[in-house]
């Protein structure tokens, strides 16, 4: 190799190599691969029962591989929803503070590179690892599914699956950025890991409980008008949407179940006369556009926060 690489890509290369060789990544990829194989197995055994006559999603058999479950094991989508944050946190929680405690941070930053190279490269490196991993998994699931059920995916199904992978990458990138932010704020890697896990647990367990409590307190009486009930429902749904996992959930179910037409409450009037048919991909994307923008915005905000605090951080030797 005679070409001189830009220092930025030198750092990215090192980051990717570090991640791939690290034990935490090997353990995580083993867990995720195993659970995905498990969910694929349940999907394959139940796919026959999942097809009902007059099912608008019936023509999208291939997508069912990602969403079908008999209740014993969650589906592929639920697993990504649950394990994706863990992946992002694992790759980011010690991004900066470990360099600081090892004493490498001041040495690297005294090289002729821009300071933001380091933080950008940390993000890009981890994103490359996450992206290739999720894409590989999705393609593997497709491949196994193809062998097992023998029906190839249509172009639209393929595009929907790729869109699902992209949404998953954004979702994991959100958690990655959050953990990088904590790794700048907290000096100890253990503290930042705990802080990330705390946020993750809060949104995946406690947030729903709190929303339920709030919901009970403000629920309209049985005598309330339909308008009041609908606005209450909408309000509750919007509260739930503050959790990134909810946004991810809505986005992926819409993408993988083409028959989903709306994510909010619908009145009988609105549904009346509608033919239960699948939406084209463009329309599905329109339905989840707010969710997508929300996820991307959350990711960008976390990155901006970590970028800002890293640039202003005073670099001292350990």
């Amino acid at each position: 190799m005679n070409k001189i690489q830009s220092p930025f890509w030198v750092i990215v290369r090192k980051e990717v190599a570090d991640h791939v060789r690290s034990w935490k990544f090997i353990i995580l990829i083993a867990i995720i691969a195993l659970t995905c194989m498990g969910s694929l197995y349940t999907a394959l055994t139940n796919i026959g029962a999942a097809i009902k006559p007059n099912d608008p999603d019936g023509s999208f058999l291939f997508l069912k591989l990602f969403t079908v479950s008999d209740g014993t094991l969650p589906s592929f989508v639920i697993f990504i929803n649950f394990l994706g944050p863990l992946l992002g946190i694992a790759l980011g929680f010690d991004a900066i503070n470990s360099e600081q405690s090892k004493g490498t941070l001041s040495r690297i930053l005294s090289q002729p590179i821009h300071r933001d190279y380091l933080i950008n490269a940390k993000f890009v490196g981890a994103l490359i690892v996450i992206g290739s991993m999720l894409l590989t998994l999705a393609l593997l699931v497709m491949g196994f599914g193809l062998i097992a059920i023998g029906i190839p995916p249509t172009a639209e199904e393929f595009l929907r699956i790729i869109a699902f992978v992209v949404v998953s990458i954004i979702y994991v990138a959100f958690w990655l950025n959050l953990s990088i932010f904590f790794s700048i704020k907290f000096k100890q890697a253990a503290t930042s890991a705990l802080a990330c896990v705390a946020v993750w647990l809060f949104f995946s367990v406690f947030y729903n409980m709190i929303i339920n409590l709030v919901g009970k307190a403000i629920s309209p009486s049985a005598m309330a008008s339909a308008y009041q009930v609908i606005s209450y429902q909408k309000f509750m749904l919007n509260l739930l949407r503050f959790a990134p996992s909810m946004l991810f959930n809505e986005a992926t179910t819409t993408l993988l179940m083409p028959s989903v037409r709306s994510l909010g409450p619908l009145t009988m009037e609105q549904v009346h006369g509608a033919i239960p048919s699948p939406l084209p991909l463009g329309q599905s994307l329109m339905v989840v556009w707010p969710q997508l923008t929300g996820l991307i915005a959350a990711t960008v905000i976390c990155f901006a926060l970590s970028y800002g605090s890293f640039m202003r951080k005073e670099i001292r030797s350990r």
Partner: peptide, 20 residues
């Protein structure tokens, strides 16, 4: 700073390296 750091080598107190 970039041009300066091209010409200046800095050995911080208790320097660290990538352990692996």
């Amino acid at each position: 700073p970039i041009q300066v750091r091209e010409k200046v080598g800095y050995l911080p107190e208790d320097v660290g390296f990538y352990d692996d």
